[in-house]
């Protein structure tokens, strides 16, 4: 479990292997949902996750690789590309500025 403080997230990275498929789809959704919250949402290949990210979400199978790239940034793995309950919790925490355990 990781505790995420929604109010501290300013840059959220959606990572996938190539950064051209699934991460693009999810990043587009999150960008829309977080547009009003001043959060930068970007998609990235796992190997190129920027070090100044506040939070990384990625497919469960890629989470360990993501942690290896940015050991100091919380990495939240998801199972479903769209409508994953963990991702929904994070979005709500950022929107409300609250903390959440995921």
């Amino acid at each position: 479990m990781t505790t995420i403080d929604g109010s501290s997230i300013k840059k959220l990275i959606v990572a996938c292997d190539a950064g051209m498929g699934s991460s693009v789809m999810l990043a587009g959704q999150l960008k829309k949902q977080l547009k009003k919250n001043g959060v930068t949402v970007e998609h990235s290949p796992v190997a190129h996750i920027p070090a100044d990210a506040d939070l990384v979400v990625t497919q469960a199978g890629l989470a360990d690789r993501a942690r290896g790239v940015v050991p100091d940034v919380p990495v939240v793995p998801f199972q479903l590309f769209l409508g994953d309950p963990k991702v929904a919790k994070i979005v709500k925490a950022i929107q409300d500025g609250t903390s959440v355990e995921v």
Partner: peptide, 8 residues
């Protein structure tokens, strides 16, 4: 990117 967002 725009088309994939639409696919989502």
């Amino acid at each position: 990117v725009a088309i994939l967002s639409q696919l989502a």
